[in-house]
Amino acid sequence: MNRNNLFLGITVIITLTTLVAGFFDLSIFNTISANLVNWSVVIGLVALATAIISLMRMHVKRIMTRRREWFYSLYFIVVFTAVCSIGLIYSSRGQPFMYVVNNILVPLSTTIYSLLGLWMATAAYRAFRVRSIDSTILLVTGIIVLLGSTSFGAAISPVFARITIFIRLIPTTAASRGILISGGLGAIALGIRILLGVERGHIPGQSK
């Protein structure tokens, strides 16, 4: 039997088992499906070091070949090893590890996305242009909803809040629902393509 057909067969059997368990109340399928779901979590957990190994290999290669800015890779490996050691020795709830998390990870995480606020302001000035009817509708709606969501808008007039509620509950819901349903239909189509073997990108060494 062809290796790829074997993998496709495994995928199909497991998918159908999980689907039957989801739609019908058959105890044998429910038990098998529940176990398979748990197995999926275990597989992911056991394999988590693969990403770390790949990352380390990339950085070590950069250091060994002295590629541009290789010292940053060295810095990365040193910091990663140090933080991992602290976490494994003192546990993730220990004081030393939480000190690193609260004073380094959390500030850096929040800062990296906060810069978007500044760039958004520049984009508002330079890029958000009323070039067509579509962009006009988008910008006008955006401005009204922005006024309706903030306390300044409410202080100017309560009409903005009322229009905002209407915009959210009717056209936005309709469009979001349409996108959700269309996306769902697309996901089902992709699922069927995987089950029929048309899409084989997930199988190692395979292309469509």
């Binding site: 290796r3 790829n4 074997l6 993998f7 496709l8 495994i10 995928t11 199909v12 059997i13 497991i14 998918t15 159908l16 088992t17 999980t18 689907l19 368990a21 989801g22 739609f23 499906s33 398979l36 779901v37 197995w39 999926s40 597989i43 992911g44 394999a47 996901a187 089902i188 699922g191 995987i194 089950l195 997930h202 199988i203 190692p204």
Partner: peptide, 18 residues
């Protein structure tokens, strides 16, 4: 790698389709 990938894809696909 095909074995674990097939299992996880199968589970994920079954759950998400439903």
């Amino acid at each position: 790698m095909g074995f674990p990938i097939s299992v996880t894809i199968g589970v994920g696909l079954g759950l998400s389709l439903k």
